[in-house]
């Protein structure tokens, strides 16, 4: 049979990688070995930043990527990381449902077939001190790694500091950075309690990792194989989301257990952050045009 190598950016033990491995196994079993999918976690084949392009140009037939990282290329890819728009797993699912046809189409135009998407646990705010209002954030050195996080820093009066992933631990330990927006899972995996004290479960957004295939490779498969892949993809999205929920509870408890103060932001802070969210949603809508507006309108009209 045929073999599909599937590059994945995160460590093998990360739940996205585990979901991907189960998805690969499902296809291999489901096709009776006619199509074997082999996952390569930890960026072993291509680093995260290269995976989308590698799949687009047929260097690998399938891969996984955090699409919101590509919003410089197309603002629509950032729909799932607009802060404070969809703030729960339920909302995230509704937003994804509203966006899926559009994203399917954008990716199809890029020679990609979208298979499934699994959210990260909700993004919260990490600090090395207690923060009760946006005023408390003034001047705090905040890790920004893309335009959204840089803009968030600007709106909250924090100082955006660009630190590459490899240097995060050392940067926190020595105070080069003092704050970041990330999921409880990332904070837990990176053991941020060694340098940070507070995690505010602001539930800012639930960005997703997307698994997509090269359209030519996809077209080269027979219908039966494609049906197996689609079925495995649906299963993976369902199971991966369940894993994300489970992992959220696990990691947030883990942060507490390791001595961090984990709480929801206070009422004042929540209101201020919501206002910033409105601003950033409006800015995103301006960048993303009619397609973006359609997504947000459909999401807001949810029952």
């Amino acid at each position: 049979g045929e073999t599909w190598d599937m590059p994945m950016a995160y460590a093998a033990s990360n739940f996205h990688s585990e979901t991907g491995a189960a998805f690969a196994q499902c296809i291999t079993t489901g096709t009776g070995g006619d199509l074997e999918v082999v996952t390569h976690p930890s960026g072993a084949l291509f680093s995260g930043a290269d995976i989308k392009r590698a799949v687009q140009t047929g260097q690998v037939p399938i891969g996984e990527r955090l699409l919101s990282a590509h919003q410089n290329e197309n603002p629509l890819f950032g729909f799932d990381s607009i802060p404070f728009l969809a703030t729960s797993f339920e909302d995230s699912a509704a937003l994804w449902q509203a966006a899926r046809p559009t994203i399917d189409q954008v990716l199809a135009d890029q020679n990609l077939v979208l298979l499934y998407a699994v959210p990260w646990p909700p993004q919260g705010l990490y600090f090395n001190k207690a923060v009760d209002s946006v005023a408390d954030m003034a001047g705090v050195k905040f890790r920004s790694y893309n335009t959204t996080t840089a803009r968030l820093a600007e709106l909250t009066g924090m100082l955006p500091v660009q630190i590459e992933a490899a240097e995060i631990s050392q940067a926190f330990a020595t105070g080069v950075v003092e704050s970041m927006m990330s999921s409880g899972a990332t904070g837990y995996d990176r053991k941020v309690w060694e340098s940070l004290s507070h995690f505010y479960t602001a539930d800012a957004s639930l960005p997703r990792n997307y698994v997509f295939a090269n359209a030519d490779a996809w077209d080269g498969l027979d219908d039966a194989t494609r049906d197996v892949i689609t079925a495995c993809a649906d299963l993976a999205e369902y199971a991966g989301t369940a894993r994300a929920m489970e992992y959220t509870t696990f990691t947030v408890t883990g942060l507490t257990r390791n001595g961090m103060t984990v709480t929801a932001p206070g009422d004042a802070l929540t209101a201020e952050l919501a206002a910033i969210g409105e601003t950033m949603t409006a800015e995103w809508l301006e960048a993303a045009g009619d397609d973006g507006r359609a997504i947000v309108d459909a999401f807001k009209a949810r029952p």
Binding site: A49, R53, A69, H70, E73, Q110, Y145, N146, Q162
Partner: peptide, 15 residues
Amino acid sequence: SWSWRLNDISQGQDA
């Protein structure tokens, strides 16, 4: 030339 055709833009803040 692929970068140009695919509109491949840096994922960092430099865009």
